[in-house]
Design a protein around this nucleic acid. Structure first.
Length: 578
RNA sequence: GCGUCCUUAGCUCAGUUGGAUAGAGCAACAGCCUUCUAAGCUGUGGGUCGAAGGUUCGACUCCUUCAGGACGCGCCA
């Protein structure tokens, strides 16, 4: 539609013989936009404002000329000049009605498959081995998963990469402690409290010199490929990931065992990478370490700062691992686009690593590598979020608390739901509220963690959207009437329809910008318009004509369909009753 | 010292290739359940968009400077 209107404008400029006075870049800059305010029509263009200067005309006057020479097309009912010289286009209502009817029949709710499907690697979640996931892990996990769902829905091949922290010197200590525990308590250890495990291991390491020696020895052995240490290490990884996978399932996050690609995966590639960097003259020796210098990075004293790719003791750091990782994703996984959902604190490290990777020829021009950073979770005092005792809140605890609060609320409302259905409703609302609280914020900025806000069920929250869906289901339970041709009888209905037709744009914006909050805002506005419609337009009442009933039922059905699909793209479930 | 990000209503946040009167939710206040689920709806109050310049027909958005805050910067990841 936008292209159609744009062509009308261009035709008009041709007729006015103004085209030759307009530069190609100006012509390319002309665009048609969806309006924010319905009073400004459905689409608008600022073409006259942009061109006025170079054509030596007043913007409004130019707009009038353009409009006077516009060809008419059936989809447009009215063209208006407004403000300083905007041209506003009003879409024919009949056309809108037919569009809505099509939308209702379309299982994809008007969202077309992408014309150029890509292989996209999405790096997200990335918990650490031998640590329990804490609340702040929700950001990468939930935002990444929503983007994965959207990209897949658009027809891309998405490879989930859970870059778990499964390598490092701490594993010597952890293996030694696991060994000690197994000697004391036998095999098949049921390890649920990793925090205590880690703490106790550290204690042994600090206080028992023999233990510390053994730990240090195990690090060397593990890195050397020793079978026993490797087996013990695998046990730790499995214990952690078993717990994490359960949490993913509870959170309705699509990550599975098969998506785990931890840091250790790239170990075998590291010597080759370093040798290659050396051969290319990128890595040079400095104080025993191998370093890649990038002129744009300086250290505290303004001296050139290198990225160490091999330590003086021969060990490797995360720059080398990340270089190998990106090479692997491009060469082995054939990634055309790679998205990293990590803390914004990693921005500098990632960018310098990519710079090296480009210099080394690991990233071809056609591959897009993007950091999708998110801010930190802060406490109410604006400082990094900690509990009163200085620890972190476990993700599991947050989910438990959410479910308790929902259960409480159901009791207060004297809910008649019971059994399996009740359990499902509690789960959907609790998980939905938590995920939505994170998804609905622009991920770039730091944000304040607050129990009451995160577990709120009013206003711009998942339960509000779920409630809109349930209300619609309730209407269809109460009638045997069917949906029918759409007729618009009020401004509320017009607005609702316009919003329904904008679903595709919202979804595509999320795919492009990796910002799920765009979809949240869209769904919230859609629900708001539906609530307004619901309050002001009777649907099943006797005074409503059969035609209008059928039309309004179509609006209900289409809204429900878009809500369900939209929420599912965010990883949030709907229910027929709540 | 160098670099990245942030500052919008009492609180929490939207506002992303510059666009028309800066929007929500919470909190406060006033209404609406014999009527399709009140997790809702309607209304009121609340803002020099951190400050000052600049670019532009037009700036919360772009540029410069300043203030305040967060984060990163060689052998952890």
């Amino acid at each position: 539609m936008k292209t159609k209107i744009l062509n009308l404008i261009k035709d008009s400029l041709n007729q006015l013989k103004l085209s030759e006075q307009i530069s190609d870049s100006q012509l390319a800059a002309l665009k048609i936009e969806s309006t924010k305010d319905r009073a400004h029509g459905d689409f608008a263009t600022n073409a006259a404002l942009i061109l006025a200067k170079s054509l030596h005309q007043a913007p409004r006057q130019l707009a009038e000329q353009i409009v006077a020479h516009l060809n008419s097309i059936p989809q447009i009912s009215k063209v208006e000049i407004a403000g300083p010289g905007f041209i506003n286009f009003f879409i024919n209502q009949d056309y809108i009605c037919r569009q809505i009817e099509e939308l209702q029949q379309d299982p994809r709710s008007g969202v077309a498959l992408t014309a150029n499907p890509q292989t996209i690697v999405v790096d997200y979640s990335a918990p650490n081995v031998a640590k329990e996931m804490a609340v702040h892990h929700i950001r990468s996990t939930v935002i990444g998963d929503a983007c994965v769902r959207v990209l897949e829905f658009l027809g891309n091949k998405v490879i989930r990469a859970n870059h778990i922290g499964d390598w490092g010197t701490q594993f010597g200590m952890l293996i030694a402690y696991l060994e000690k525990k197994e000697n004391e308590q036998g095999q098949g250890l049921d390890l649920t409290d990793f925090e205590a495990f880690y703490r106790e291991a550290k204690l042994c390491f600090d206080e028992d010199p023999k233990f510390a020696d053994k730990a240090r020895q195990y690090v060397v052995q593990l890195q050397g490929g020793d079978a026993y240490c490797y087996k013990m290490w695998q046990k730790l990884v499995k214990l952690t990931m078993d717990q994490n996978i359960k949490l993913y399932q509870r959170l309705d996050v699509t990550l599975t065992d098969r998506d785990t690609m931890g840091e250790s995966l790239y170990n075998d590639m590291l010597p080759g990478i370093v040798a290659d960097l050396q051969q290319q003259g990128l890595a040079v020796e400095d104080q025993g370490a191998l370093v890649v210098y990038l002129p744009e990075y300086k250290n505290k004293d303004g001296e050139p700062l290198g990225n160490i790719v091999r330590k003086s003791d021969g060990g490797y750091l995360y720059t080398t691992t990340d270089l190998a990782c990106i090479k692997y994703r491009i060469e082995k996984l054939h990634a055309q686009r790679i998205l990293y959902f990590t803390d914004s604190r990693q921005a500098q490290h990632l960018h310098s690593t990519w710079k090296i990777a480009k210099l080394a020829g690991y990233i071809p021009e056609w591959v897009s590598v993007e950091h999708c950073p998110f801010g930190m979770m802060l406490g109410k005092d604006g400082k990094p979020f900690k509990t009163r005792t200085g620890g972190t809140v476990k993700l599991r605890e947050l989910l438990d608390e959410a479910e308790q609060r929902v259960e409480h609320m159901l009791e207060e409302r004297h809910s008649t739901l019971s059994g399996e259905q009740r359990a499902q409703v509690i789960h959907n609302i609790a998980i939905g509220a938590i995920k939505y609280a994170d998804l609905s914020k622009n991920r770039n900025t730091d944000y304040i963690f607050d129990w009451d806000q995160m577990l709120s069920f009013e206003g711009n929250t998942a339960p509000y959207l779920q409630y809109a869906y349930s209300r619609i289901c309730s209407i269809f339970r109460k009638t045997s009437l069917k949906t029918g041709a759409v007729v618009l009888s009020s401004p509320v209905e017009e607005e609702l329809c316009a919003k329904l037709l904008a679903f595709s744009t919202a979804v595509n914006d999320v795919a492009q910008k990796s910002l799920p909050n765009i979809l949240c805002t869209y769904l919230y506005e859609l629900s708001g318009l539906f609530m307004h419609f619901y309050e002001h337009c009777p649907i099943l009442k006797d005074e409503v004509s059969p035609e209008l009933k059928a039309s309004r039922l179509t609006l209900c059905a289409t809204t429900a369909q878009v809500l369900k699909l939209g929420l599912s793209l965010l990883g949030i479930q709907v229910m027929e009753q709540m």
